[in-house]
Design a protein around this nucleic acid. Sequence first.
DNA 1: CGTGTAAGGAATTCTGACACG
DNA 2: CGTGTAAGGAATTCTGACACG
Lengths: 100, 100
Amino acid sequence: MSIRTKKVMTIGIVSELTGLSLRQIRYYEERKLISPERSKGGTRKFSFEDVEKLMEIAEKMEDGYLTFDIRNMEKAKQTNEQIRKTMLRGQLNAAFRTRR
Amino acid sequence: MSIRTKKVMTIGIVSELTGLSLRQIRYYEERKLISPERSKGGTRKFSFEDVEKLMEIAEKMEDGYLTFDIRNMEKAKQTNEQIRKTMLRGQLNAAFRTRR
DNA sequence: CGTGTAAGGAATTCTGACACG
DNA sequence: CGTGTAAGGAATTCTGACACG
């Protein structure tokens, strides 16, 4: 796991970094837009990647999107990523077959 | 400021990441081996760079060094870095003068 | 010197709920 | 729907001190 994806920050710092309120951050978690980890005691732990996601979410919310839509946009983005990788693999395989 | 140098972690997480006790981390701060920031309330905030430093410190302590010596080794390292940069600048200047 | 620990207090976070628009 | 807020409790952290070797 990279430094960007390691869950190490408490919600207070994330709030400072993103400018979002604690309430907003907790709500976006409830709506499955982010997935912080938890300490034994139950304290949320976020990564820098989560902070980046939250900043994108903040923009989308300002643009008037619903959390539901933002969730779908995230999913779509991931799916496209999958497709892109699959297609790339296909291209590589085709190129390889051509060569022998 | 990069992601590596941003002070975002509480001492509990740093303890988990380094394997050091809270007491040890606080003591190494007292001895000026690390310099965490503070929240308004006084809570320490560490960076990933601090975590790296602490792991080096842990090694040195196991090797039997005193915090005092480790502090000096850090200083020496920084001084060498300065010298290296100064000399590099000198080389570049010399090369530049040669060319005209 | 370096570290553990108990002590008391303060800062931080948690959840569930009510309110508003 | 998204967010603010007061409420009560729990987890986390803080400092200064005593102890030990």
